[in-house]
């Protein structure tokens, strides 16, 4: 029973991640989808190998995708508002700053994810660090 419910949760998380990717592509732009894909690639190839159950890690990954989607929605609307108020030159500013602004959530969420995962066995230290 527990095994089945675990698989159900895993399935739900995977569906949520897929939905985030689709929504980002349909309603925002391909750059937003690419950022989510890069985050997922790093997460699935590196963090997934660390301590903690699969569902905890997938839960964090899902949360990351939702955060990324939300962040990109905000950025998208920020761009629309910027162009409305400042005209075409805002597009250049947006194009330059977009990946920098986008990586803010990727890096922050990455460090937060690592901080909440169960710790590995710590090494014996001779000093009080």
């Amino acid at each position: 029973m527990k095994f089945k419910s675990n698989r159900l949760v895993t399935g739900l998380f995977l569906e949520a991640i897929g939905l985030c990717l689709m929504l980002s592509f349909i309603f925002i732009n391909i750059a937003a989808t690419a950022t989510l894909l890069i985050f997922n690639l790093f997460f699935l190839s590196l963090i997934i190998q660390l301590n903690g159950t699969l569902n905890i890690k997938l839960g964090i990954l899902t949360l990351g995708n939702i955060t990324g989607l939300f962040w990109n929605v905000v950025l998208h609307h920020f761009a629309i508002a910027g162009v409305t108020f400042f005209g075409e030159p805002f597009n250049v500013f947006y194009a330059v700053s977009y990946p920098f602004l986008n990586f803010m959530w990727v890096v922050s969420f990455w460090s937060m994810s690592l901080a909440v995962l169960p710790k590995p066995k710590s090494m014996k230290a001779e000093v009080k660090t």
């Binding site: 790093f42 590196l46 963090i47 660390l50 803010m104 890096v107 922050s108 990455w110 460090s111 937060m112 690592l114 901080a115 995962l117 710790k119 590995p120 066995k121 710590s122 090494m123």
Partner: peptide, 25 residues
């Protein structure tokens, strides 16, 4: 890059220091 530093700090059992990774900018 940030992902390498994060994993290194994790393997060292340093969880609090992870929060500073965004400051690498």
């Amino acid at each position: 890059p940030f992902f390498e530093i994060g994993i290194g700090a994790y393997l060292d059992g340093r969880t609090r220091i992870q929060w500073l990774i965004p400051l690498l900018l």
